[in-house]
Design a protein around this nucleic acid. Sequence first.
DNA 1: CCGGATCCGTTTCGATACTG
DNA 2: CAGTATCGAAACGGATCCGG
Lengths: 148, 148
Amino acid sequence: MEEENNIAFRSLCPIATGLDVLGDKWTLLILRDMIFGHKKLFNEFKESPEKVPSKMLSNRLRKLENRGFITRAKGKINKKSVYYLLEDKGLETLPLMVELMLFTTKYYYDHLGDTYTGDVKTKMKTDRANYIKNISTNYAQFKKMLVI
Amino acid sequence: MEEENNIAFRSLCPIATGLDVLGDKWTLLILRDMIFGHKKLFNEFKESPEKVPSKMLSNRLRKLENRGFITRAKGKINKKSVYYLLEDKGLETLPLMVELMLFTTKYYYDHLGDTYTGDVKTKMKTDRANYIKNISTNYAQFKKMLVI
DNA sequence: CCGGATCCGTTTCGATACTG
DNA sequence: CAGTATCGAAACGGATCCGG
């Protein structure tokens, strides 16, 4: 078979391993909210436009924690708060998020015009590496400055 | 709120629209098999290591067809065959696949060493654009040469 | 043989309600 | 604020069956 000798196919096969997180709607939306929205609290995630049911939310947050994408920290000042923060593994889904954004804006939102999607699209296309680095640095800053 | 003025967040929100395909394990695996394995027949997909149940397979093939990612063509020479082929929309999930591969090899298969993942990883990182173009061209060639 | 459809027990979803 | 409890509806997935 052709694919037996195809290095690309051989090393692609294992994508299945990560798909219980990266092939799931809710975990992707949570990661999006953390990376781009700097969300960190249970109720912040619940406010997202997609209206994740609280059961799904707690389930997926635990999954993300168990898989090492995020960490959970109980508030020290505000003892009733629980902070969910991205680990490296979680933040490194950013390039994938960018592709998700590019694909979605192209095939589902192109008609909305540049006022809605244009700026970030051209930014991502013309200077993808820098765009990713900036968003990533932003999150690292946010995390460092955050007083729990 | 910070995110209200964040163009990245505003245009990222709509990723949800595409997640019924791109946030689903089986559709992603089918797209992988088509893009990298040049699979095209029902039974070829069934042979994948992840063992997709035939019910899921037919369901997801129909979803991919309905969303415009692939087309379905009945065989003309071999009348009992049904060919599933990528449309542009399907092939353009390739950059996303590449990120999925990079992430998965990094976090789940790095210990396997370069013999398994190294070649394609460095290739993707150092010459990502060219790698994508090559895989894409390969599929276009395959599709053009295919006698149905 | 190929491309599914059908059946059926099990799991998951998701909406609403409720609680420490 | 950060979750559980509940419950009917939907989806899953393994096995089998079926028409061409």
